[in-house]
Design a protein around this nucleic acid. Structure first.
Lengths: 166, 166
DNA sequence: CGAGAATGTTATGTTACAAAACAATATGAC
DNA sequence: GTCATATTGTTTTGTAACATAACATTCTCG
């Protein structure tokens, strides 16, 4: 969020203001989207710091996680899962391939598509990556107040998402 | 574990997590940050569509809401509240001023700073804006399952944010 | 007064993201 | 089998969000 030293940043996170004052003008603390955005930025900030040593960004992390658990998927399939345009997926995959973590193989039946797989080094990398992620996730769960609270949060976010599935 | 009810079919948002721990590699559905991001994108998408007629983006909405409820604040104060760099706030405020919705006034004691206020047209605009927002927010609350669920979501998001305030 | 900080601003760079066009290949109607 | 159409990966391009540095003006305070 704000990594600058001298800057002050106090997001509006106060207690719920029961009634909207000022003729229906919403207070920032009552706006779901505002809170969601601030929380997402905070979580991503923690993520990015956690993975600064591994030089891994959130999108790259998610791609590696999918390739690790479901090897052989095509580029457009993975891009579709993550909501990434396949045009923008190219450079991302180029990076992973250049680092020797993942590779494109010729798909069996279809000569247009590439099936994606981890390299041996990529498999080792995913192990380290997963450990780092676990620390990050544990930190978030602690802030939430425990695993049950995490589950409740996931459940609520799923309710927002379920009616929206692509 | 967050795996209880919902068995989705399509993409990733529905955790297919049974005991799907491939050597600690997280499933996307179990990642707080991933779910947060997807939910935030969905909410912003709904917001942007809701405000397409008013041609108002989320950042502009939040600035107008602050000016409406707390007129007279300085640019750097509002930028600080919203986590916007004051350098980037300039163009945003220029736009609001050019549209005749808000204005910079010379601050009383300090000739460097500007105090921000709504114009008369801006006040009318904020009324319409608030009505549109209420529809947007009600839609989200309905997805969540009611106002009580909304409050629970806000509470959980606040837990993530509270420990993050400077 | 004079050094340093704050404020608004300009300029610039980086990154995420979307849209359009294209070659190669696949698919399906006929 | 042929041909129109769709899909896949890719390149190119544009836009919006976001950060950083530098600057002039003004304030603060020792």
């Amino acid at each position: 969020m704000n990594t600058q030293a001298g800057e002050k940043s106090k997001p509006i996170t106060g207690p719920k203001t029961g009634a909207a004052k000022d003729a229906g003008v919403p207070a920032l603390g009552d706006i779901i989207g505002y809170k969601l955005r601030r929380a997402q930025l905070m979580v991503f900030q923690d993520f990015i710091e956690s993975f600064s040593q591994l030089k891994l960004r959130p999108a790259e992390f998610s791609v590696l996680a999918i390739i690790a658990t479901q090897p052989g998927l095509k580029q457009s399939e993975i891009a579709g899962m993550l909501g990434i345009k396949r045009a923008n997926f190219v450079a991302l995959m180029d990076g992973l391939e250049k680092r020797g973590l993942a590779e494109r193989r010729k798909a069996d039946g279809d000569r247009r598509s590439h099936s994606l797989h981890l390299t041996a080094e990529g498999a080792r990398f995913v192990k380290k990556m997963s450990a780092v992620w676990q620390g990050h996730e544990d930190r978030l769960i602690a802030r939430l107040g425990g695993a049950e609270e995490r589950d409740r949060l996931i459940t609520l976010l799923d309710r927002l998402l379920d009616s929206d599935e692509d």
